[in-house]
């Protein structure tokens, strides 16, 4: 297994973590609602064929509480652009999952040169009146987890404190997981739609849009809406037996889809 190396960079004066693993062409990864509490089998699989840079956004596990300084989507986009530059990943291929995919799409539209090829795994960012989506962050974990993944036990394991932590560290671990939800809330409450539909046409990059067939957070119908809006060449893929967070439910399958599309 590639053990990722990790470093911290300052974004708006607060630490953000950059994890790196693998060799070859760079793929930058922007995480979903739970962040990257632990290195995942998906990132591991992806790093077998390329250099993966996994960025932890402000407020998410591994990073400090810089989310308190981010008041709107522009702030989040700018912080992510800063982070991308600090990682030396400006212009690399960028993949995002869920809210990370929303940010990736915003960056691709706002700052085209910052993103090479674009991979969107079940992005937030649109709201279709005929197929409305719930507020994921308004759900307690007993409802949020099943909305986010098929494999709830797998998600719980990802979020569980590693063995051997002191009691104080366990509390801080829990707080860090809670903070990720707070940061996502700050970004997305009450509706994660900030006018991306008006900017989608600015995405001229080669784009892969992937959806979990069982996505209960954002119905797969949204894939078509994204594909219709993006100007660049679009490939649409559906991953079977996967919910919203495809990288958690089907890590090997998604890594294969992504790797083969990137070539």
């Amino acid at each position: 297994m590639n053990t990722p190396s990790a470093r911290t960079v300052q974004i708006n004066g607060k630490g953000c973590r950059i994890q790196e693993a693998g060799q070859g062409e760079t793929l930058t990864y922007l995480h979903g609602p739970f962040g990257i509490p632990k290195w995942t089998p998906f990132l591991e699989a992806l790093s077998e064929s390329r250099r993966v840079l996994a960025l932890s956004l402000p407020g998410f596990p591994g990073s400090e509480n810089g989310h308190h300084d981010l008041d709107n989507l522009t702030d989040w986009v700018m912080a992510t652009l800063d982070l991308l530059e600090a990682a030396g990943a400006d212009g690399s291929d960028v993949m995002g999952s869920s809210i990370g995919a929303m940010i990736a799409a915003e960056i691709a539209a706002t700052s085209r040169a910052s993103v090479g090829r674009l991979i969107l795994a079940a992005p937030y960012g649109l709201y279709l009146d005929e197929d409305p989506i719930d507020n994921l962050w308004a759900k307690r974990s007993n409802k949020m987890f099943p909305a986010a993944v098929d494999n709830v036990d797998g998600l719980k394991e990802l979020l569980a404190a590693p063995a051997g932590l002191t009691n104080d560290d366990k509390v801080e671990w829990e707080i860090a997981q809670e903070r990720a939800i707070v940061a996502g809330t700050r970004m997305c409450w009450p509706i994660a739609e900030f006018g991306l539909i008006k900017r989608l046409h600015r995405i001229t990059q080669d784009t892969l849009i992937v959806w979990g067939a069982n996505d209960r957070a954002i119905p797969p119908s949204y894939a078509k809406a994204f594909a219709a809006g993006v100007t660049g060449p679009v490939t649409l893929e559906t991953v079977a037996d996967a919910g919203h967070l495809i990288d958690l439910d089907q890590p090997a399958r998604l890594a294969e889809v992504v790797s083969s599309w990137l070539g």
């Binding site: 759900k139 409802k143 707080i175 809670e178 939800i181 809330t185 409450w189």
Partner: peptide
């Protein structure tokens, strides 16, 4: 309903601790 009794970030981290 406990579904509506909490909301993320409503409470400070200090109070969560």
């Amino acid at each position: 309903s406990a579904d509506w009794a909490v909301a993320p970030g409503y409470q400070s981290e200090q109070n969560s601790r």
